[in-house]
Amino acid sequence: MTIGSMLGDIVNSFFKRPATGRYPFVRTEAPEDLRGKVVWNPETCTGCGLCVKDCPSQALELFTLDKAAKRYVMLYHMDCCTYCAQCEVSCRSKSIYLTNDEWELASTSRTPFEVYYGREEDVQKVLEPEPQGEPDLSPESKTE
């Protein structure tokens, strides 16, 4: 039976540095294994489409430009991504993975959330489709 049993706490707290922070002005370190923005490596991707298939939030789209030459473009919808790392687990060639340095991804418009990965000329092609190189959205045809 005591009254004010947190007296010690409040006196302590009073002289301690506050536990809360002024976030946008003072930043904290992110842990090493933080799951940040997904990146994709066009050089090693085999175009199997497993990552697209397994992504629970349909955050990935794979455009096949030339299957034989392994020319693919990945469209990553950052706003859909839940940072679950399933794509990283599903990929057998380690072509898609989560980074740990980019995590302050908020934005006031939608455009920065559409991230195209791939060789520059391929991305160009996806963005401005020419009549012959029409990209097809082909996750279905690619699996297993």
Partner: peptide, 9 residues
């Protein structure tokens, strides 16, 4: 009060 609760306030 905030400082007593270890907040910035």
């Amino acid at each position: 009060v905030a400082r007593f609760q270890n907040r910035i306030g």
